[in-house]
Each structure stands twice: as structure tokens, then as C-alpha cells.
Amino acid sequence: MNINRRKWLGSMLALGGTALLPMRLFADTAAAFKATSADVALKALFGDLPMEESPAINFKVPDIAENGAVVPVSVSTDIEGVQSITIVVDENPNPLSASFNISPDAIADISTRVKMGKSSKVRALVRTPDKVYVASQEVKVTIGGCGG
């Protein structure tokens, strides 16, 4: 009787744990996208994982974007064990732009296009199980295409 009860408790705990984990992750992602500062967004996504600048990230964005509505961004890296790639535009109203979850069958090499409200630092963050690697670049947005 006692053993059964214990087993039951144990399995319920295990169930609860597995059920809660994805929910928590989901909530954090939602919060991260709503965040109005880059620091808050990154905290929600990565918690207390250590961050480190890395030259191993091949991060391609233009130095000058003539049209802030369409800024091409490419991120690729040879770092092992990449779980996700995240793109953050620090000065945007919601700095978190996009986050890509990389499975072991995908290569850490993605390209997309983002909007930028004004000139800003753009960051690419590569998450591995124990660390977040960062590459960043300033992108100047010329409003109206007049070279301002």
C-alpha cells in the first residue's frame, strides 16, 4: 500500500514536471517577445546562462541599411551543439526580432530580413547547452534614403 502510494506520488511528480517544463519555456518566449528592452528579453530567453563574445559566429548585416523596413540578416556558426539562434535589434520597440530553434538535423546557418526603426546595435545570439555566444554590429539606417 505504502509502496504503491509512493510510486504513484513519484509518477505524478514526474508527470507534473514534464508537463510544466514546456509551458514555462513557452511563457518565457512570449514574455521575451513582449519585452521593451533587450536586457529583459535576453533574461527571459536565456535566464542566467553566461554570455560571451565569439568570433566563431559569422554574422552578416549591412553597415548601412538604406531601407529600415528590409534589413537582411545572416547568421552561421561552426560552434558545436547549437540549440538556437536569436536576433535582437536593441533600439526597436520590441528588441527581440526572431529566434530559431535548431535541431541536430539542421545546420546553424540561417538568413532572414528584419525591420529597424532607427540606427541600432544588432546582435546575434547562439545558444548552446552551457553558454550563449554573442556577435554584434552597429547598423545605420538612413531615413528616406537621403544618406542622412
Binding site: V71, V89, P93, S97, A98, F100, N101, S103, R113, K115
Partner: peptide, 11 residues
């Protein structure tokens, strides 16, 4: 094999 979460700031 891959998934992405987008915010409204994707073009």
C-alpha cells in the same frame, strides 16, 4: 527539423 519564433519586427 527547425522552428522559428517571430516577433512583429520581421520584415
Amino acid at each position: 527539423v527547425l522552428s522559428a519564433d517571430f516577433g512583429a519586427s520581421v520584415s
